[in-house]
Structures are given as structure tokens and as C-alpha cells.
């Protein structure tokens, strides 16, 4: 299937008019970013999945409020997701967790956590723009623990092809991160 060339701005405009396929496409592009952020903030998988659903319900309701002159869609969606996740935490506090203790922990502070959230958001969103074979190569290269030779053997591809495609994928990601998502 050919990739959908519509921009996020165009999709949001259509969603504001109630266009369900546009909503599906935006969901495809951002679902993993949203779930990733929810998992980092909430921890519990079931509640994170609920928060991800809440986020997209919120996108559906508020797409008409997106104003392209005030920022990029990725930033707007990030804010919608963050708010939906925080609202969800307030509405459905984890009953198994008591109030946090008043002691310093080794966890990152709010500023560091926000920075990590934003980087992950952009990178995961950019990954969705890659063709499937390149995305798999990047995911294998970075998160499977395999070397390039092991990936080549695993996929049954020549080592040179794996390197060339992975390099091309990194270039595409760089373009994407410097462009609309930057």
C-alpha cells in the first residue's frame, strides 16, 4: 500500500470535519509515540493503554482547535497527549500506589523527564515515516542487541545492503527530525 502523503496539518483539518480515515492515518502515525509516553509516565500497561485511547478521543474532539500558525502538529499532539495522560492519572489514580514519599530518589527530575518524553515522541513519530523494511533495520540495529553482521545473517541479506539501507534510514530520520517534527 502506498504511504499516505498527506501532512499532519491536512489530516487534522479533515479530522475536524469528522473524517474517520484521516483519524485512522493520524492514529497510525502517532499511536506508538502516545503509548510510549503513557508507559513512561504511568508505568502500568493497562492504564497506559487506557490513557492512549483517551488521548485519541481528545484529538478527535479538539482537532478543530488546532491552529497551524501557532505551532507544528507534532507539538500540538504532544501537548494533547500529555494533558490527556495527566487527566487520566487524576481520574483514575493507581489504587495500589500510596502517596509518594518525601525523599529524594535517583529518578530523573520533571525537566529531564519532559526532555526525554519530547525526544522519544519525535523519534518514534519519525520512525513511522520510514518504509517498513528500513524501520525494521533501525529497530534491529538499535534495540535488538545485534551487530550489523548478525542482522544481515538474521534477515538473509548481504551485509553491504544492510549497512546501506540502515544509513539511508538514518538519513531519512534526520530529514524528518529537521523538518516538520523539528
Amino acid at each position: 500500500m502506498a504511504p499516505d502523503s498527506r501532512t499532519d496539518v491536512e489530516l487534522l483539518r479533515l479530522i475536524a470535519e469528522g473524517d474517520r480515515p484521516a483519524f485512522e492515518e493520524l492514529y497510525r502515525r502517532y499511536a506508538r509515540s502516545v503509548l510510549g509516553m503513557a508507559l513512561r509516565r504511568i508505568g502500568d500497561r493497562g492504564r497506559a493503554e487506557d490513557a492512549a485511547q483517551d488521548t485519541f478521543a481528545s484529538v478527535w474532539r479538539s482537532a478543530s482547535r488546532y491552529d497551524p500558525s501557532r505551532g507544528r502538529p507534532a507539538s500540538w499532539l504532544y501537548a494533547v497527549a500529555r494533558n490527556a495522560i495527566v487527566d487520566g492519572l487524576r481520574r483514575r489514580p493507581d489504587p495500589t500506589v500510596a502517596d509518594p514519599p518525601d525523599i529524594a530518589t535517583g529518578d530523573p527530575g520533571p525537566a529531564d523527564a519532559a526532555e526525554t518524553d519530547w525526544v522519544s515522541w519525535r523519534v518514534h513519530r519519525a520512525l513511522e515515516t520510514l518504509p517498513g523494511n528500513e524501520r525494521s533495520l533501525v529497530e534491529l540495529a538499535y534495540w535488538s542487541g545485534m551487530s550489523q553482521s548478525e542482522i544481515a545473517e538474521y534477515l538473509g541479506l548481504p551485509l553491504g545492503t544492510v549497512k546501506t539501507r540502515t544509513r539511508a534510514a538514518l538519513g531519512r530520520l534526520a530529514n524528518e527530525l529537521e523538518g516538520e517534527l523539528g
Binding site: R32, S33, G36, V119, S120, R122, E139, Y142, L173, L177
Partner: peptide
Amino acid sequence: LLVQAGPPPE
């Protein structure tokens, strides 16, 4: 950035 972001969830 990829290293910092970590893997996206399935």
C-alpha cells in the same frame, strides 16, 4: 536521539 529515545512500544 535514537539511543536517548529507546524503543517504541509494540
